[in-house]
């Protein structure tokens, strides 16, 4: 056993234990740690954005353009900066409509850039991957591929809203919801695993980095 000599490890260990104290009961120490976490993460983000965005992408280019009397360069930086600043009008209820300008611009940009690759990734490639090609009755993977095809088609039936779920449509969509539930089961299992991993990570920190019990 070799206790850590780093003050930061001790602070982190103290905060970890105060957060876990919630498992017994809500208490002021837990709330203290929660507030420290929120404050620290916001502070970190502000520092990163200030040093890696505001200064290199706005401050320095504006200063350089001004010093060099490069007026087109100045406008090139100033216009997007001003548009971005319109976001702050959210704080003024009467002028809050001005915030819609940058939002509209961003929405337009994101829609434009995402439509084509989204169709290619989520539809073309996935549909092509589901089509049964080179079916070989003696190969197990071919039967898995068939099961996949049945799963996809029946699930699509479940999410088909233009037809009543009756007769063959009803039966197929019922099969579809079975596939969906099995997928949820797998996802649930994985999520439990993820949560346990987080606990293990913290306990490893306490036992290895702080107390030095673990090698």
């Amino acid at each position: 056993m070799q206790l850590s000599t780093s003050i930061w490890v001790w602070i982190a260990a103290f905060l970890t234990l105060t957060i876990y104290s919630f498992l017994y009961k809500d208490n002021p120490l837990y709330r203290f740690a929660e507030h420290v976490f929120v404050g620290a993460s916001v502070g970190w983000s502000i520092a990163i954005v200030w040093h890696m965005t505001a200064i290199p992408y706005i401050g320095i280019p504006l200063r350089d353009a001004f010093v060099q009397r490069n007026w087109p360069g100045l406008i090139y930086v100033a216009i997007p900066t001003l548009l971005g600043c319109l976001y702050f009008f959210r704080f003024f209820p009467k002028q809050s409509w001005l915030a819609r300008w940058p939002i509209a611009l961003m929405m337009g940009y994101y829609c434009g850039i995402s439509i084509s690759p989204s169709i290619e990734t989520n539809i073309f490639t996935q549909v092509q991957g589901t089509i049964l090609t080179g079916f070989n009755p003696t190969s197990l993977s071919s039967w898995w591929a068939l099961l996949l095809l049945i799963g996809v088609v029946s699930t699509l039936f479940y999410f088909f809203f233009s037809l009543k779920h009756e007769g063959i449509v009803g039966k197929t969509s019922r099969l579809g919801i079975w596939f969906v539930m099995i997928a949820f089961g797998a996802s649930f299992g994985y999520t439990v695993m993820a949560r346990v991993s987080l606990l293990i990570g913290r306990i490893q920190f306490l036992l290895h980095d702080w107390l030095g019990i673990l090698k």
Partner: peptide, 10 residues
């Protein structure tokens, strides 16, 4: 190292 704990919890 964490896998033993993971197995036990599972």
């Amino acid at each position: 190292i964490a896998m033993a704990s993971q197995n036990f919890v599972h």
